[in-house]
Design a protein around this nucleic acid. Structure first.
Lengths: 235, 235
DNA sequence: CGTCAATTTGACTACAATCAAATTACGTGG
DNA sequence: CCACGTAATTTGATTGTAGTCAAATTGACG
């Protein structure tokens, strides 16, 4: 049962010189004439929640910049069970493997409604050749992804269920836990932490009883960051 | 107790135009005059078992090519416990983050006696600029590392202790499990799989009783690959 | 309001962690 | 080469935590 019926991406604008990629860190510093080098369309894409951005093993034709929303990268085990190996949010890049002519390594699935720019790999290749700055930026993204993967492994796959859930909540809450955030489905959380949905449910429920996780209404939550950090660090 | 007394690298040859980096996949295709671009020494380094290639947070001055031996990349949790996030073997590259001017992200520790080439980041940068082929090769290495990290997480941090150990053994045995291999210490195996040394010991012992793992003498082992695969896939 | 899926809760089991002790392997110096 | 001391590994007994299976509840959506 690894396969969820595919909900395809919705293709929008055919060209987006004015689109916000230009404001994204990835493309910051490009001049107008750099955009003249682009001979293929950069698509502006919207994907609804649960929709697929790309499918594992699909030939990697485009690199994506995430403009808004949340995307999960999923990998499958032979027995059909799944593991979420990374979460991507605003301004993250996905599908970098396309630049090497490789097929995509994961299923990329939208967790919320998502907007992204789909850039043909040829376009990125050309721009990178002309613009060393963009090029360096790409390398940094690659390294960032790698570093994320390592931290993900270390933090979210080690320790008790309580500690793992605490670490994930801190991550979802963001660097300064001022604003409320939306909680993910129990199954997704389980797939990130290597736990069953039931265990996640129980653990979350307990944290809520202890008021370390508080619902603000409309499915939005805030955390008691210091307390969670204690648990995360093995308190 | 996260710190093991550092055993430093042993510096050897000051220059190695004739050294085997040239034969490595990374530098394959370079011409003699490409080597003329090198104005800084490429050191040939030997590190004894348990020695450190580099230390986490140390400024990343050089990229390394592993010529022989086995290296682990280690990351630490706030509580001092450690997790091995990758294993590197012949012809793998480590310390790529140095190319971006970043500090090293891990402790790189030799599991066996190790030989490697230490290449100043400036050298790689220059060569990469002159030789698009090398450049592409670098990107591939980066992507490879990322892909390894994802598989590592999915395979080695998911499922029962039995399944994890089975997957690790298959990995250590190599693609075609013809030749014998050396088993790692129980603590290291534990740090890779997220298990305690005791659990690893018990699990390994059971696999040996079932003759799915056989000692050939001198601490060398062979596996019953098909049987282990069944266990790995949740049989 | 009814249906279906997701979540919660409960009871029980299985598995791995922990603590402790015994044994083995290994490097060192006699 | 052997004896010793130390570290690593194995084994045992017990506890604690998470998995499993099942049922009840909630929630979303038509």
């Amino acid at each position: 049962m690894p396969y969820i019926p595919t909900q395809n991406a919705w293709n929008g604008e055919a060209d987006c010189r004015t689109c916000s990629v230009r404001g994204s860190v990835l493309f910051a510093g490009l001049q107008q004439n750099d955009f003249d080098l682009i001979h293929q369309p950069i698509d502006d894409i919207a994907v609804p929640a649960q929709g697929r951005v790309y499918h594992v093993h699909e030939p990697g034709a485009r690199v994506f910049t995430l403009r808004s929303g949340l995307v999960k990268l999923v990998q499958y085990l032979p027995d059909g069970s799944q593991r979420i190996v990374r979460l991507l949010r605003g301004n993250d890049v996905l599908g970098l493997e396309a630049l090497l002519g490789q097929p995509y390594q994961h299923d990329a699935i939208a967790l919320t409604a998502v907007e992204l720019c789909a850039i043909p790999r040829e376009v990125v290749a050309v721009l990178a050749r002309e613009q060393p700055a963009l090029h360096t930026e790409l390398l940094k993204r690659w390294q960032q992804a790698l570093s994320d993967a390592d931290v993900w492994l270390t933090e979210l796959s080690t320790g008790t269920a309580r500690a793992r859930v605490a670490r994930l909540l801190l991550r979802l809450a963001g660097p300064r836990p001022v604003e409320a955030f939306r909680l993910l489905g129990r199954e997704d959380i389980g797939a990130m932490l290597g736990l069953t949905p039931e265990t996640v449910s129980r653990t979350v429920a307990e944290l809520r009883r202890q008021k370390l996780l508080r619902e603000q209404g409309a499915g939005l939550f805030t955390v008691d960051a210091p307390a969670l950090r204690r648990i995360a660090d093995g308190g």
